[in-house]
Amino acid sequence: MVNYENLEVEIDPPNKIAIVYLNRPTQLNAFNIKYLEELIFVLKKISKDNRLQCLILTGRGKAFCAGGDVVEFRNAEQPDEFMASMVSRLHEGIKILKNMSQLTVAAINGSCFGAGLGYATACDFRISSENATFGCAFTRIGLSPDSSTTFHLPKLVGLTLANEMLFLNRALNAEEALRFNLVNKIANPETLLGEAKKLAIQISKGAPIAFAYTKKLLKESYTNDLESHLEKEAESIVKTAGTEDFQEGLKAFFEKRNADFKGN
């Protein structure tokens, strides 16, 4: 375990997993600039670690992340300049999450609001504790949303519910989050991290090159037209067909066994 001022990082090379714990529990893991700089540094480091195939993001204490630290918002002498500095870091972290080849799992252990919800929705999978709650809360204090919330949320829950969450500050409990496709699964608090690790290990046994191309294709599907996306799919499947993993996958299929992918 590597400890930072606001984060704890656990690297598990045998299982090809990294776990990042948001660790500012007395502030409900709310973001400030120093904390975000640490998170960006750690995410960049993980993204470049070829030993790793999955990242789990979770929180210490009773919250996943309550969003931005409103105490620091209140104390800012120049609120607009402070927010510009804050949001640039928030968005750098989101872009690293989306662009890293590793798949990402948010293990949402409690309150997940504002930018915390943005980070959760930017992950590829989300597992929620039974006692987690979800909300936006930006407009409640007179702010428009950030951290990809208006990008990912309507794609996950639909525009109708996203409007309620963004304009009317509707909060969801875990059962509602599951029903509206905001999360993949619910676990009890004691087994949440274990369930996330189980999913991460399942991911880590997959074909890393194929997964990386698939993640990229899914991200680009939001902006590509059909013709250009078909071209991207064709390019990607040709590249993955030239890998040793493809030969191993074929061999395993005909031998009726699980493939042993190496990322080659």
Rank of each mutant, 00 (worst) to 15 (best):
C112T: 08
Y21M: 08
F167Q: 10
L97W: 03
V105Q: 11
N258L: 12
I108Q: 01
K48E: 15
F180M: 10
G93N: 07
P145Q: 06
E220P: 02
T160W: 10
E233Y: 10
H229A: 09
C65T: 06
V183K: 01
R51K: 13
K95F: 07
G67I: 07
K198W: 09
K205C: 06
L168I: 15
P154T: 13
F246I: 13
R140A: 15
T104W: 10
A30W: 00
Q247C: 15
F64E: 02
F31T: 06
Q102A: 02
I17V: 14
F82H: 06
D69N: 09
P154E: 04
L193E: 03
G114N: 07
E5P: 00
Y213R: 12
M100Y: 02
C65I: 09
E81F: 06
K251E: 08
E164V: 04
I108L: 09
A200T: 00
R89E: 03
L172E: 04
Y21W: 12
Y119Q: 12
F253G: 08
L28V: 09
A212V: 09
D69P: 00
A234M: 14
A120T: 00
K45G: 10
R126W: 05
G61I: 00
L90A: 01
H152G: 09
Y119D: 05
E8Q: 15
K205Q: 14
K95G: 13
A252S: 09
L217D: 05
T104A: 12
T58N: 08
V87C: 00
Y4Q: 05
E175I: 11
Y35E: 10
S85W: 07
G206R: 15
F125E: 02
G242M: 13
K98D: 08
E5V: 15
T240A: 04
S148K: 04
H152Q: 15
N15D: 14
R170E: 15
N163W: 08
H91Q: 12
H91Y: 09
E38L: 06
N109V: 11
L22N: 03
R60Q: 14
K95A: 09
I94A: 01
E164F: 01
D245P: 08
L230V: 06
V20S: 01
N169L: 04
C123Y: 04
S228A: 13
G118C: 03
K44R: 14
E10T: 03
E176N: 13
L22Q: 01
P208S: 05
G61F: 02
Y213S: 07
N50Y: 11
I40D: 07
L22Y: 02
E77C: 07
P145M: 02
L218V: 15
K215R: 09
E10P: 06
I108Y: 06
R60H: 12
I19G: 00
N3T: 15
V9Q: 09
L161I: 12
G242K: 14
M1P: 12
T150A: 07
R51Q: 11
K216G: 01
P13N: 03
N173V: 05
L55N: 00
T240F: 10
E235K: 14
F113I: 12
D12K: 11
L57V: 01
P13F: 02
T133F: 08
C136S: 15
A84G: 01
I237W: 02
C123S: 06
S228H: 13
K216N: 10
S221W: 06
F41K: 15
F254P: 05
E190V: 10
S111Y: 04
F261R: 00
R179Y: 11
N184Q: 14
V9S: 06
